[in-house]
Amino acid sequence: MMRTEWHDHDWQLIHAAPQSPSLHMALDDVLTHEVGAGHRKPTVRIWEWASPAVVIGRFQSLRNEVDAEAAQRHGIEVVRRISGGGAMFIEPGNTITYSIYAPLSLIKDMSFQQAYAFMDAWVIEALGGLGIKAWYQPLNDITSEGGKIAGAAQAHRGGAVLHHVTMAYDIDAAKMLDVLRIGREKLSDKGTTSAAKRVDPLRSQTGLPRAAVIERMIATFRRLHGLTDDTLRADELARAEALAQTRFGSATWLADVP
């Protein structure tokens, strides 16, 4: 396998109407496989959320991470994604989430640390254009002087890498702390005891509407790497909907690490 560059690929953009949390999990699975198998060109997908969610990492313990009773009380669906990393608290309109599905050749011979920073260099540039001095903080955070902006996760599947990121646009920190169990050990080397203080959302930093931030991000990717507007194929959506039902919406998958 030869190392490839961004410009060696014909990047496609998918930005669909709001979808359910379990369908988002399934779409990441399906589209990673499609790119890995060569059935789809490398793709960027911007997520729109139909409903609030907590998305836990592949290896996180459901009961250790989530207060199920609080989640239910707030009407928040809890789902497990296929990549590692930490829990994300999602409310529609409060986060900007995107996925990049790329052939593994794009990050060939890179360390994990290099691969994370490489996949998000365009976002650092986009944020710079919005007046935010942001940088990559290993292992998997995008941060700024004000605090953390985003968390990334990667998974390798069948010849492709999935790189997805959730950025905080706005945040209801009180509700987040009600639903997520954030232990003291987790914060032990973060220099603060307040989980809420760790996040500095884009809304306060840019003063721009969420859609405008997304527009600027897309424009930056397009300028740097090229980007063609695309849509989900009917067969991709059908497979994702089936998986959302049978796997990603199932109690078995959610409690895979109970």
């Binding site: 990492g57 590692g84 292992l139 690490v257």
Partner: peptide, 8 residues
């Protein structure tokens, strides 16, 4: 049971 926010 091992768990956490790491990557494997």
């Amino acid at each position: 049971q091992l768990s956490g926010d790491f990557f494997l």
